[in-house]
Design a protein around this nucleic acid. Structure first.
Lengths: 153, 153
DNA sequence: TTCAATGCAAAAAATTTGCATCCCA
DNA sequence: TGGGATGCAAATTTTTTGCATTGAA
């Protein structure tokens, strides 16, 4: 894999190539995202940009545009809905297959992280970031056969 | 690990043990969750229960109670907010450490799924569930040192 | 019988949309 | 200069809360 491109340059270029304008609000949102490592909510982005008088609505619109162009990712299952399932104590440990086309969720039984890898991870995170891991959640995104055939995404 | 307990029995028992009542709405929500493998939203649970005249508010309250007792899990990052970050093309592939206490998110660089395991997974899912994986998202939950010290959860 | 749990209505929180105005390419 | 982008206000969507009434233990 090559060195990562600089988003401060690559994103304006990508916008221009698709015929979108690089406006003040868009630049402001971009600056915030570049400065911040962890994912931010629209409200969080907005508050870090406030000095430049950018409307929250524009933050939403910018974030959606960039996501649509594949320049941004949303950490969540998306669709701004919370979903619930029985505890793993009952269902057994499993991961989720989530279709980017239709949003459907399927289960994949078992764990894809080896016991050894997982143990090593717990130890290293505990030391390096002083974080005690209790559980994890792996989501596998892609296209189900139906959406794949239909050419979604 | 022992055989998984039957949630239809274990959950009512757990409720009783903590002094909570097993009511009609709670039983209805439980039945829906047991019948369904994949995670469901409150609205989805509600629609599958409609015949029994359960209020959507009760679905929310039941789901929150069960989650608080550790009998249910929410697949999402929770806090019902969507968060955005730059595409991995820019940030590099990484996972997230999410504190169950304060909700803060930190990054863990690199991938914990070995290349070999990942390839095998892609192949098996492609065949078994006819699903084409494009990317994945691993979230590691637990407690940051601050919340751990404070005794949250 | 009693207090937790429910339903209804209304509030909050998060996100999206309509439309007149503005400004980047 | 023209059409995409913005801001404001208002609408939607999802979730939470207040309160009188109901019902499980």
């Amino acid at each position: 894999m090559a060195t990562s491109p600089d988003p401060r340059h690559a994103i304006p270029t990508a916008l221009a190539r698709k015929g979108f304008r690089l406006t003040g609000p868009r630049r402001a949102v971009l600056d915030v995202l570049v400065a911040q490592a962890a994912p931010l909510s629209a409200a969080e982005i907005h508050s870090r940009v406030r000095n430049r008088r950018v409307n929250l609505v524009s933050v939403y619109r910018t974030v959606h545009l960039l996501a649509k162009l594949g320049l941004l990712r949303t950490a969540d299952t998306s669709r701004r809905i919370r979903r619930f399932e029985l505890a793993e104590e009952f269902t057994g440990h499993h991961h989720h297959l989530i279709c980017r086309g239709c949003g459907r969720i399927e289960d994949v039984d078992g764990c894809l992280l080896g016991d050894r890898a997982l143990e090593a991870l717990h130890r290293s995170v505990r030391r390096a970031q002083r974080f005690r891991i209790t559980d994890h959640d792996l989501k596998l995104f892609g296209l189900c056969h139906r959406c794949d055939a239909r050419g979604s995404a």
